[in-house]
Write a protein that binds this DNA or RNA. Structure first.
Lengths: 365, 365
DNA sequence: AGTCATCCGGTAAACGTTTGCACCGCTCCG
DNA sequence: CGGAGCGGTGCAAACGTTTACCGGATGACT
């Protein structure tokens, strides 16, 4: 009956041999059963499953990975987890990964391009099967270095060449056009845009989508209404203040991300202006916080769960041959979520401190 | 010269044999060198390091884990990553883990206790060395089942018995007393508290810390000012509305978490009351969003980075014998962060819709 | 009935490390 | 001068899987 030497192993977790022994089959059969590969006699299979169940066996993923060369681990590189843009992305990534039998490994660059190298290094040591790079502002030279690695990589927007690389496209235009249209329908003709730092690919994309939308809808854009921000709260505050000081502020302000929009809200609050009565504000990203601002922020949303899903699927498609009928399509939409920061334009232009709403300026503590 | 069969391995990543061969030593020596275990002749060691460097070798963590039985992987179980409480915790956990040479694996329960089982399952399959359970509202029976596992576990607040378990204590009282004192110094005598759901351990802790602080500072608490919330925005809104409707609202409101406080802010905004002129509001947790509300929220902070650091260290202390001089102390402080939602109490009681600030009610969209 | 193809299950060799054990040469001491 | 002790190194056996390969049984066809 073979294998007499292992017996009464007390407290250690059961291994494949224990299962094989209990089911009176060889370990090969157990392996084939749990991987449902090739054909195993249904009666044997049943014995095996039963044995697995009674022993509470679960395969050792490291041994598996070691011999098969596939770890079923997916890497996710992000900028910084405390940036409210990312948690939802991570959640989506994890959900879809787990759905497909993968575990995930997260690493953050903290916006420092040189840390990307370490992230990749850690991922490689853990032998991930593929990596999704979802960080802001990835640089071209860095891409080339990434290209050396022999694992599938997926990016957003940017499209490096190479058979192991995939790109997820984002249709910024769709949602931004909806936003501009929304404002136009409300009656706004003076619409401003505060962009992100223009060295960022995604910021440029958003800005040009805005310009295109303005053009196609047939509005006129005063160049002074197009300002460059930096995707921070403070940036939003100072740019909005500048617009107010100019004396020729637009009646509606769109921004390249929600942080900037919240900055705008703060600036308006300080200037004693009301939203949406005096100004309409639209953010971008529809970060969780957007629901909680005062007033809740109208924002253009790119589904981060969808983005994450695409990323996982793109990697999976590299790793597991798909049926020929399957046509991958990695593209995510954007769309407008209307909340309470947008409304009809004010009848007469807002003038700072005209006191028409009688509020004293907020006290400085 | 041995090992002639491996040669010209072209594109595969170098393994320990390649290093050994290049350094003209055995693989055992290479292993001992990189783990700096036992004593290796410095000259050999140097040859080894050089070989490692020229080949760009990095050890295969799975093979390592397989034979050593230690994966250098730490599990982290949280409630939900999109809850703004967690990202900072995760960040801290990761930082300290990486500092100590560990990687982390995250899993979320989504507040469903039954999912805890799956989380643990996944962790065990990946053979984590230890797990930190940082989820809200863990149930006693679940703890007992966790106890079956043979890996170190660390918890917050709750203290299961067992040699493999550690607990991190949180000193809620310190920060909450600071908060009450802050309000008292400003002149508030009517201070209310909106608790979390009282079946949660941490919510009870916070409430009793508040009661103790009120007592020790010598204030009187009207029982109507002590309300149970549910840690959600909506809960905060409705409880605050109830307080306003009662006609005997406190002049300052403390809450058991920031979400509730933001709800309070919303309710006050709708009721046309001003913060901090009419009411002072203090949150708990000091979540990132608290900086961005209107006005920025005064809040009691428990350092989540510190909490995370304690968790990692507690696990490490279980896994790696520490020098006897080392005395572990897993306790984290709370403290008050003052922003702009607190100020002097209003001279005369606020009355809804008395129009004294002339604002029209916010339009419903 | 004999031969061949087919199918399924078992045996054993990997995968890349760590580590117990044995060995070798040196030093030190009797 | 010989033996004991020891520091340093190599050999080989694990760790728990997957999978190529082989061999035995079974059914079909001539």
């Amino acid at each position: 009956m073979g294998r007499a030497k292992r017996k009464a192993k007390a407290s250690t977790r059961p291994d494949i041999h224990a299962v094989a022994h209990l089911a009176r089959v060889s370990i090969a059969t157990v392996s084939r059963t749990i991987n449902n590969v090739a054909t195993v006699d249904p009666r044997l299979a049943q014995r095996v499953w039963k044995a697995i169940d009674t022993l509470g066996y679960s395969p050792n993923s490291q041994a598996r990975a070691l011999v098969s060369g596939r770890s079923r681990l997916l890497g996710l590189i992000i900028s910084e987890i405390t940036n409210p843009f990312f948690p939802e992305l991570i959640q989506g990534f994890e959900d879809v990964a787990v759905e497909n039998g993968y575990e995930i490994l997260i690493s953050s660059t903290n916006y420092e391009p040189q840390r990307m190298e370490q992230c990749i290094q850690r991922m490689l040591e853990r032998k991930v099967d593929g990596v999704a790079v979802m960080t802001f502002g990835i640089e071209e030279p860095l891409l080339d270095r990434l290209a050396q690695r022999e694992i599938p990589l997926v990016f957003v927007d940017v499209a490096p060449k190479g058979p192991l690389f995939s790109t997820i496209e984002v249709d910024y235009y769709h949602g931004i056009r909806e936003a501009v249209q929304h404002l136009a329908v409300l009656g706004h003709r003076r619409i401003g845009f505060i962009s992100g730092p223009l060295h960022l690919h995604s910021a440029r994309e958003r800005q040009s989508a805005f310009l295109r939308a303005i053009g196609e809808i047939g509005l006129k854009l005063n160049p002074a209404w197009l300002q460059e921000g930096d995707h921070t709260l403070e940036g939003g505050i100072s740019v909005m203040q500048k617009l107010l000081d100019s004396g020729d502020a637009p009646t509606a302000i769109m921004t390249s991300n929600d942080m900037t929009a919240i900055g705008v809200l703060h600036a308006l609050y300080k200037a004693d202006a009301r939203v949406p009565e005096d100004f309409s504000v639209i953010g971008f990203d529809d970060v969780t916080i957007a629901q909680f601002t005062l007033p809740p922020l109208t924002s253009v949303q790119m589904s981060r769960r969808e983005l994450a899903r695409c990323a996982v699927l793109a990697l999976r498609d590299h790793l597991e041959p798909q049926p020929s009928s399957y046509v991958p399509r990695y593209k995510v939409q954007t769309k407008l979520t209307v909340r309470q920061s947008t409304g009809l334009p004010s009848a007469r232009p807002f003038r700072r401190g005209n006191g028409r709403n009688g509020r004293k300026p907020a006290p400085q503590s």
